[in-house]
Each structure stands twice: as C-alpha cells, then as structure tokens.
Nucleic acid binder design. Structure first.
Length: 561
RNA sequence: GCGCCCAUAGCUCAACCGGAUAGAGCAACGGCCUUCUAAGCCGUGGGUUGCAGGUUCAAGUCCUGCUGGGCGCGCCA
C-alpha cells in the first residue's frame, strides 16, 4: 500500500516537473507514513511541504497541483489536502486487506527482510567475569543483546553471539583465594580471610563441590576438581568452570545462548597482546614515561593518554581490549555491536582510539556500542539490594525464579537502553491487567481460543472463501488492525537499524490493543460464512504477527491462559 | 572541575531519519459478561514535554547555555 502511494506520488511529481511548477532537478526526500488519526485517512505524505521552497509556492497550492496530477488507482479511494499541506490518502478496503493475505502466505517470515544479507555481524554481550552469579544488570544486557541479535537475524544478517571474559587476571586470583579460604573452613570475618575476597555464600558451594571432587560441564569449560585445598591453580580452574556453568544455567533459563566464548587468556597465549603492543609502537604512537609505556590516544580523540604497559611489565586491561577488537575485525565482522553497562562507557573512546592507532584500516567509530543504564529493583515500593546467593546484589536467577522468564525478559527489553530502569517485582509478577506482558500474551491466547471455537463448531477456516471476501473487513476497528499489521516490517527494520529492541515491545502493545478493541467490537463466529472466514483470516494474521513479534523478544506465545 | 547518558500526565513509560490536536498502561471516576477467554472493552478528567534562547514552513525530537539526577574520570576491569 505504502509502495503504491509512493509510486503514485512519484508520477505526480514528474508531471509537475513537466509542467514547470517544480524545478526539474528537485529530488525531495519526502515521507509517506501511516496516520495516527483515522480522520487523516490511512497514509499521509509531506511531499507538498518539501516542495514549497524549491517551487517557490505555498505548500497547499503545490498539494492541489499534486492531487490534480495524481493518477487514478484502485487502491486509493480518495485524497485530501489538510493542515499545512499534508496529502491524506484514504485506502480502498481491499487494498488495506491485502496485508492479511500477505501475512498468511509468508507466515513465520512475515516482517523479515534481507537488507543485511551476506553481512557478518557480531554482538558481544553479557561478558561477565566468572567470579559470581549474574546480576540484574547482566540480565538487562542479556535481554537487550539477545533481542538485538534476533532483530538482526530477522533483517538478514549473519549474527554471531559472543561472550568475552577474563579467566586469568587479578579478579580470578582473588576468586581462587576466596574458594581456597572457604575450602579451609574460613569465613569472611576470619583474620586470614583474603583481602577483598568474595564474601558471597555461593563461594561456599564452589568450595564444597571442589572438595567433593565434582566434575563440572559449562558450555565452554569442562573440569574435574582436584579436591586438594593447597592446589591454588586447580582451585582457580575449577572455580572458573563452576561459575561459568552457573552463568550458563541462568542464561539458558533466560533463553540466551552464545556461539562463541572468548577467553582473555587466549589473547596472551596466542601472542596477540604482544603483537598489538608491537604494532602500536611500530606505528610511532607510544612513548615511555615514569617507567611505563603509554599510548598517545589523545591523537585519536581521547582526553588523556593511556598507560598500556605498567611499570611492573604487565599490560593494563586496555591493551587486550584493543587486541581483542582487532581480532574481531580480522574475523571479518564489518559490524560489531558491544552491549555493555554504561558504567564502562569510558572504554568506548579508548578502544576506538587504540584501534585507530593500529592503522589497520578500521573505520573510525568502529565498533558500535549499545550501553544500558543501571537497573533498580523494587518490591513493595522499596529498593531490593540483597540476594541470598550473591550477598550484595540481586541476581538474574532471583528474578527468573520469582517473576518468570517471559516477564523478566519483557521488562528488561521493553525500555530504551539509555534510560534508567526500575524493575518493579510486584508489577512483573502480577497476573493482572497491570502487567503488559500478559496483555500481549492474552491477545494471542484469545485468538487461539477463537480458532478452537471454529473447530469445535465444525465451521473450520476456509482459506479460499476468506481470500475472496477480505473486502468485507470494513469496520474502523478491522481497518485499524490491518493497518497495524502492515506496519510490522517497517518496525522491525527500524528497530534493527537503530538497535532499539524496545520498539518491538511497544509495537506489540499497540497491536494487542488494536486487536482487543476489534475483538470487543466485532464478533468473528457469525453465521455469514463469507464474513466469518474473512474475520478468521484477519484473526490468523494477527495471531501470526503476535507470534513473530513475541519471538523477537524471546517471549512465549501461549495458546491459553 | 571535565566527559557520557537522562529529564514527557500523580506513577511507569511511548512517540517511526523534525510533521497535523504529544500517546498508552497504572492510579481516580462512570458504564459493558444468558454472545468467540472481562488477564478484555467503551467513556470522563489529567500536560507550558525541567528552564531560557536559537535553527525551521513545522521542534518532545536538531543547536547553544543553564538546572536537576545517574555513571565515569586508576600503572583496577
């Protein structure tokens, strides 16, 4: 429908150029958008307004000329000029109803596109170090990152989900010492407890499992405990595997799986950190000062230079970060999206500067970042801070256990990443109309119920009869619903291009609202077979789009509630 | 002090590369189940989009300066 209108307008524009009303070299960037108000028809265009300046005439005058030049089309019932010069298109019912046919023909693939075909995209997200259970912030990253991946897949990209973690640094040593202390029966208040040790109760579980000689299988780690409290190296390996397994279990319960687990230690082992340091020095962007080696990141937009090798000879975390991103580039990812907490935003400039200093042909501004703000969890209006397992923070597992996977995913993905999020546990777990997740899922369940009714009445859906009678879907509510269905592909494209998964949640709320309104206004199972089947077709199409959209969020579409 | 992000109805949030009268849900009030799931629908009230300028035919959206909040500013990650 939209394409039809664009084609008509392009013809009219060509005619105006012919008449000399508009300079022949004018190439306006105009829009044809669905209207918010049905009094404005189905679609509106701002073409006349964009032509006002080049033509040197008032927009409404241009609009009239465009209307006069507009070719007849069976899809368009009539056109109005309104407001400052909008062209409002009122679509013919059967043109609007074509979307029902399209949805039923394309099914699961409705809304998908191939704009990213052939392009490899990597999304790095969660990337928690294996020093404890995942917290709510990781959950937000997991929800946003995974939905982004689904969106990118839906727009044709070849997506790799990647999880990066440090398995060998000071934090891991600290973890090993903490587990060792627990294995020796010490508690955090004991004088020999390691300074800055991990105090959470989960460390006890790790220690007990280690002493029991357990074998753990994580997605990327398989280790059997040595059970010897003096073997710190064995403890370290076991603790990392144990906590990785815990994280994987949480992520699986959340419906998130990764293609690649990337270990920071592998960058050292494969000589990539050293090679990166050498290359930076070769390109002349480093200098020695105070016994340390610095990278002149200020040449690439940073506000101060950064130490890349410390006085003690070790590299700072920053250098493996650069080496890691160079590796991503060399793996052929033209687009890389890093989903991280906004508390790490300072690394953005630094990593990009480091990559530029390599002079490796990496575009400035590569990679992309999606940064999410903090999550505040509340219950009964009070902030929730503590968790039994982790001690100092609310875990992802706590939320999944308490409010369920669907509601947790939905709540964490349904808000813009760059705004702070309040996760209201009471709201998320309420099985009532307060809860937006159920509102959308209920629409799906209701439609399934209608289909069951059709079967039970032995008046099953007749596809051919329905297709011949789509023109019968002529109420305002049905047209609004069909126009909403028609917008879905654009919503996906826009959400993917802008890396904004919350737009899918928003769309689903709108779609569900249009459906519920329609459901209350128009009875499906009427005796008129032609009308009944047309309405069943609309119901099937709506159910399909609800399913497709919920799938993008990783939320289930229940058949009954 | 410097940098990044945010500020929209009483509350939680939308608003599609700038478009018409800024929209939903919750909360408040009034209606709708002998009819396909009332976890629903219909209606009423609720706004100087933090403040002040600027660009534009058109600004919640873009620019500048303020105010308020979050995060960051380590030879930690």
């Amino acid at each position: 429908m939209k394409e039809t209108i664009i084609a008509l307008l392009d013809e009219a524009l060509a005619a105006l150029k012919q008449q000399g009303l508009v300079p022949a070299d004018t190439a306006p960037r105009y829009k044809v958008d669905p209207t918010k108000d049905k009094a404005h028809g189905d679609y509106a265009s701002n073409l006349a307004m964009t032509l006002a300046k080049p033509a040197g005439k008032p927009p409404r005058e241009i609009a009239q000329a465009l209307v006069d030049a507009l070719p007849e089309s069976p899809a368009v019932r009539h056109v109005e000029i309104a407001g400052p010069g909008f062209l409002n298109f009122f679509a013919a019912t059967d043109a609007v109803a074509q979307v029902v046919k399209t949805v039923l023909e394309t099914g699961d693939t409705y809304g998908r596109s191939l704009v990213g075909a052939g392009e490899k995209v990597q999304v790095e997200f969660v990337s928690a170090n294996p020093t404890g259970p995942l917290h709510v912030g990781h959950g937000r990253g997991a929800a946003i990152g995974d939905c982004l991946c689904r969106l990118l897949e839906a727009t044709g990209y070849d997506v790799t989900r990647e999880f990066y973690y440090n398995d060998a640094g000071a934090q891991i040593q600290n973890l090993a010492l903490s587990v060792q202390a627990r294995a020796r029966g010490l508690s955090p208040d004991h004088p020999s407890w390691p300074e800055d040790g991990y105090r959470g109760g989960y460390i006890i579980d790790v220690a007990e499992s280690y002493l029991a000689g357990d074998t753990v299988d994580a997605d990327d780690q398989h280790v059997t405990a040595a059970a010897d409290p003096d073997d710190l190296d064995a403890i370290r390996r076991f603790a990392v595997a144990y906590l990785r397994r815990e994280q994987d279990l949480d992520l699986k319960a959340f419906g998130v799986e990764f293609d690649v687990y990337f270990l920071e230690s592998s960058l050292y082992r494969d000589g990539k950190v050293a090679a990166t340091a050498e290359r930076l020095a070769d390109k002349g962007h480093t200098y020695e000062q105070d016994g340390a080696t610095w990278l002149r990141t200020t040449d690439f937009g940073d506000d101060k230079d950064r130490v890349m090798r410390k006085r003690d000879g070790d590299y700072t975390y920053f250098l493996p970060d650069v080496a890691y991103h160079l590796d991503k580039w060399q793996r052929g990812f033209t687009t890389v999206i890093n989903e991280q907490g906004a508390d790490h935003h300072s690394t953005v400039t630094r990593v990009r500067a480091g990559l530029q200093a390599l002079e490796a042909g990496i575009p400035p501004g590569w990679p992309d970042y999606v940064l999410h703000q903090m999550v505040l969890v509340t219950r009964s209006g009070e902030e929730v801070k503590l968790s039994k397992r982790a001690g100092s923070y609310v875990t992802l597992r706590d939320l999944i256990d308490e409010v369920g996977r669907d509601a947790t995913r939905y709540f964490l993905a349904a808000r813009r990443a760059d705004s702070q999020l309040t996760f209201d546990i009471d709201l998320a777990r309420s099985q009532s109309n307060d809860n937006p997740v159920y509102y959308v899922q209920y629409a799906h369940a209701r439609l399934c119920s209608v289909m069951r009714k059709a079967e039970a009445d032995e008046r099953p859906f007749d596809h051919d009869l329905a297709m011949d009678n789509l023109v019968r879907l002529e109420s305002d509510q049905e047209k609004a619903l069909m126009n909403r269905l028609a917008r879905y592909p654009e919503v996906i494209a826009h959400a993917a291009a802008n890396r904004e998964p919350q737009q899918i949640a928003q769309y689903l709320q709108d779609l569900a609202a249009d459906f519920h309104t329609c459901y209350n206004a128009v009875k499906v199972m009427v005796d008129d077979a032609a009308l009944r089947n047309a309405r069943l077709a609309l119901g099937l199409a709506t159910r399909q789009v609800l399913r497709n959209g919920l799938d993008l969020l990783g939320v289930s579409a229940p058949e009954e509630m």
